[in-house]
Structures are given as C-alpha cells and as structure tokens.
Amino acid sequence: MLLEPGKEHLPEFFRRHRVELVCSLPYYQADMVDRLRGAGVFQKSLEALRRLNELGYGREGSELVLNLMANPVGAYFPPPQAELEILFRRELGRRYGIRFHQLFTLINMPIGRFEEFLRRSNNYERYLNRLAGSFNPATVPSLMCRHLISVSWEGILYDCDFNQALNLPLGEELPRHIRDFDLKALQHRRIRLAEHCYGCTAGSGSSCAGSLEG
C-alpha cells in the first residue's frame, strides 16, 4: 500500500510525525503470502519494509515503531506469539535484512472470505469445533467489545469491527448511532455474540492488536 502511486510520500510523512506502524505480513516466505494475498504481494511488502527500515523504522532502540501482524495462511491456529516472533526475526533478518520491533499473531476469524474458504474446503466444522474447544475464559475480560465500540462511516454503532463487517449493529435497546452516544448505556450493554466470537476467545485470545496474552 505504501508503494502505490500517489502514496509514495507516506513513509516520510509517517517518520516526520512519529507514527507507530503495524504492517500485515502473514509469513516470511513468498509462496505462503502470495497464496493468501495474490501474486507479487510478498515482494511488495518486502520493498515497503525495506523502505521503512531505511528511514529508521524497526531498528533496535529506534522510537520509530514498526510492528508486524501475522495470521495463519489457512484453517489452522497461529503459533505462540513469542515463538513466532523469534522465528520471524531470525528469518526476515537472515534472508532479507529486514528489522522490526514486535510481532503480533492473529487467529483467522471465521467470517467473510475466510468463512467462504472454510466452507468450500470442508474445513468449517472442524475449525469451528477447534475454536470452541479452545475457549479460554481468561480472554473474556480483555475482549475488544468489552472496551471499545466500532463506528461505521455512516455513524452506526457496532460492538466491534467484526460485527460491523457482518452487519450486526448494536441491539435495539441501545443507542444505535453516534449522534445518540450515551457512555453509561454503552458501558453496560449486552454484546451481540455469535459463532465467530469463538475466534476471539480461543487459546491465548485474539484482538486487532494480536494475541491477548503475552
């Protein structure tokens, strides 16, 4: 994205304003990434990361924070975050000379295109069972929906971005538009749960900022 025409100024803009960056990189090998994202995407990601490294992003001790976000390339769970970070650091450094600060892992949520893939490939039931079977009550207090709300561009309120993607707005008893914002009512609301929520509560948990447990 940083290399697209008309956006070349962004890395320098980010550096000037000390913007903390999180870049999506599912794996450190081209074939795995391109399978998920399309041909040539890995190479483009590497170029963007190199550019950011050149500007000082991701270097040890640098205040220009460059974190990576990895999610599995299929119907399986991510490795423990700390272990994958060691692997990524070693391989990205050794193969491409790329440096970064932290790696976050994400569990693939069974929604949207990934849900279509799960159903098409006959993986849906087993994946869902696996998510539900890995339910970890310790993740519940940190779930995104317990601390945030998600607002669409039209101002409609959702429990989280996943519910927004699924078009599951807040319940009818609650303020449903940003113009009716009511902190108290929203803080004590009933969250709209569905099957995909097991994606947030499985194992060490998952949020938009990676695994919920270190």
Partner: peptide
C-alpha cells in the same frame, strides 16, 4: 501436519 503449521514450520 497441522501441528507443524501451528508451530511456525512451512511446507518446505
């Protein structure tokens, strides 16, 4: 196969 993928190994 799943355990390998889930511990960060790749098909290679």
């Amino acid at each position: 196969t799943r355990a390998c993928l889930e511990s960060g190994s790749n098909p290679e």
